[in-house]
Design a protein around this nucleic acid. Sequence first.
RNA 1: UGGGGCGUCGCCAAGCGGUAAGGCACCGGACUUUGAAUCCGGCAUCCGGAGGUUCGAAUCCUCCCGCCCCAACCA
Length: 564
Amino acid sequence: MSEESAERTAGRDFVRDIIQADLDAKRCAEVVTRFPPEPNGYLHIGHAKSICLNFGVAQEFGGRCHLRFDDTNPAKEEQAYIDAIQRDVRWLGYDWGNHLFHASDYFEQLYAWAERLIQDGKAYVDDTPLEQMRTMRGTLTEPGQASVYRDRPVAENLDLFRRMRAGEFPNGARVLRAKIDLASGNMNLRDPVLYRILHVAHPRTGTAWCLYPTYDFAHGQSDAIERITHSLCTLEFEDHRPLYDWFLDNLPVPARPRQYEFARLNLTYTVLSKRTLTELVRHGHVSGWDDPRMPTLAGLRRRGVPPEAVRDFVRAIGMARANSVVDVAMFDHAVREHLNKVALRRMAVLRPLKVVIENYPEGQSEELECVNNPEDASAGTRRVPFSRELYIEHDDFLENPPKKFFRLAPGREVRLRSAYFITCREVIKNAAGTVVELRCTYDPATRGGNAPDGRKVQATMHWVSARHAIAAEVRLYHPLFTRPDPGATGDVLSDLNPQSVEALSACRLEPALAQASVGVAVQFERLGYFCPDPDSESGRAVFNRTVGLRDAWARVQAAGAANR
RNA sequence: UGGGGCGUCGCCAAGCGGUAAGGCACCGGACUUUGAAUCCGGCAUCCGGAGGUUCGAAUCCUCCCGCCCCAACCA
């Protein structure tokens, strides 16, 4: 493939192809999309796919994207969610300008259109009880039955509908239905409900209404009012498209939007059902919507995932119509790829093992220059204190090292990153036989990490000066679920991972980490990316692991264990 | 058994009649003051299956198989 054609297909998908064709054929003069969340929960990584699509496409084609709250069911919606959603969309990097709308902005117009349908004989008030209406709708293979109210005179329908609005009837007493086709193979066309009575206050319209339009009756017309050209939604709404079109065909709407569907995102080891996520929060299985283990944008943000990585990920998974489950490793890859380029390097010891440098003068210390980011020279350097007593990672020492272990062991010499070569001279254990301290010697000639005589070491390890280190708790996160397909064989909650968070409380960090900003990930060299959590207090830092570094040694060990 | 969709490498995903892109994962190897990053190499004679049309098919036709969605006064 030529470079030019590779360029042309890059970032292309069926949605963009459709839009390009519409533009070329002059079916529309500009591109207007919308992201239409229902404010009944927090946005998650699956929504990010839709947000990036809608806002991304608008940007690419020089159009605009509206943020519209689909707030037609006040029983489930809250102002707190409206606020959180706006915060999260902005965090992801998108701006709706002054195009912030709500389906509730159109309640009066929608109501007028409903009366219009009644007047045209295309809608009727039905008094059939909920249960009965359900059975009368028929089944997938049998047609529905007509309600006895289906042929109510227009005047009676109008009168009843107006009295419904006036609040004369209790919840559920009556609904307004479209008169379409009770025998349709598409259940959505079997006289769908347009309005239901709900004596519930609405976050925006308060008590102005006691009947509310359904999603179907609100969505397409809202699109038309806003002159949306391409209404992009997920596959499960495909069956609703004929109804979407029916309303636009039967109402004097100002524009003719078109709906297109794409496959929603699924991720291994992850649940993206709002119902389940809400349950996790309500029942305290996580600390909140922004728990770093949650796939919500708020959770990812708290974990230290940068918005660029989320956007990169969405670009990488593509846009298609086939149901699929993306390997969460792809997401981790996008996070590492971005953080590798921008994150500052720091040293932190998670499981400290004390090291005393016997030939380093007591009471002395010095500062060593360390590179902040080898991938970015402009990030500069910093000075890190070194002294007689240090901490190294407990995992970096083995008294009886196996063949492929390159790190510290009795008698072995390794490099302390940006500092000196040290050699392990003695191992000190406690009564239980646990290694609690190493006595080492250093070679003063290797300052900075290079031996003048050219001798090599097999490992370079991170370290921290005991006297200068700051104490911290570091939280390591593991998948919230134990199965790649949570809930596949029963209750989702039974697949919850009881060890999804591992808090290490005795961690020691290099002093520069005191300046780290909440939510901004830095790399703890050789370990992964971490960022300060809002739980941090002065004197007690708390860091979250955003994602670990790839770990070839861990894989060698795993392979060894598997062969045994 | 009704209606609507979808099936290309372990996972995503290009491809639109001219002889299977790319990414992730995985496996080698180089390099390395992060066992990271980077770099090089490997990884679908085959596109759910079977027929057919054609000089030529993943792409067109037929039949079959499998998976997903729909029977809320949710979205």
